[in-house]
Amino acid sequence: ELSWTAEAEKMLGKVPFFVRKKVRKNTDNYAREIGEPVVTADVFRKAKEHLG
Rank of each mutant, 00 (worst) to 15 (best):
K21R: 12
E36F: 08
K25G: 07
R45A: 09
E33Q: 12
E36L: 07
A8C: 02
K25N: 12
V15N: 03
Y30V: 03
V38T: 08
K21D: 15
A41T: 07
D42K: 07
L51K: 10
R45P: 01
P16A: 06
R20H: 03
K48L: 14
G52D: 11
I34R: 10
Y30K: 02
N26S: 11
L2M: 11
K48Q: 15
W4R: 00
R20L: 04
V15L: 15
R32W: 06
M11D: 04
D42F: 06
E33N: 11
F44W: 04
E33F: 11
R20K: 05
E33G: 09
E49K: 14
D28N: 10
E9N: 06
R20P: 00
E36M: 08
E1N: 12
T27L: 06
D42S: 08
E33P: 00
N26E: 15
E9D: 05
L51W: 15
L51I: 10
P16T: 03
A6K: 12
G52P: 08
A31Q: 00
T5C: 03
K22C: 09
P16L: 05
I34D: 03
P16G: 04
R32F: 06
F44Q: 01
N26K: 13
G13Q: 14
L2Y: 05
V39L: 01
Y30I: 03
T27D: 00
P37K: 11
K14C: 06
F44E: 01
K48S: 14
K46W: 09
N29A: 14
A31F: 01
F44G: 00
K14D: 14
K46V: 05
I34V: 10
E1V: 10
K10Y: 11
E49Y: 10
K21V: 11
A6H: 10
W4M: 00
E7V: 05
V19Q: 15
N29M: 13
R45G: 05
A31N: 00
R24G: 02
T40K: 02
K48I: 13
A31E: 00
K21A: 15
M11A: 07
N26Q: 15
A8S: 04
G52M: 14
F18E: 13
A47R: 04
S3E: 14
F44N: 00
G13M: 15
A47F: 13
A6V: 11
V43Q: 02
K48E: 10
E36G: 02
V43G: 02
A41Y: 05
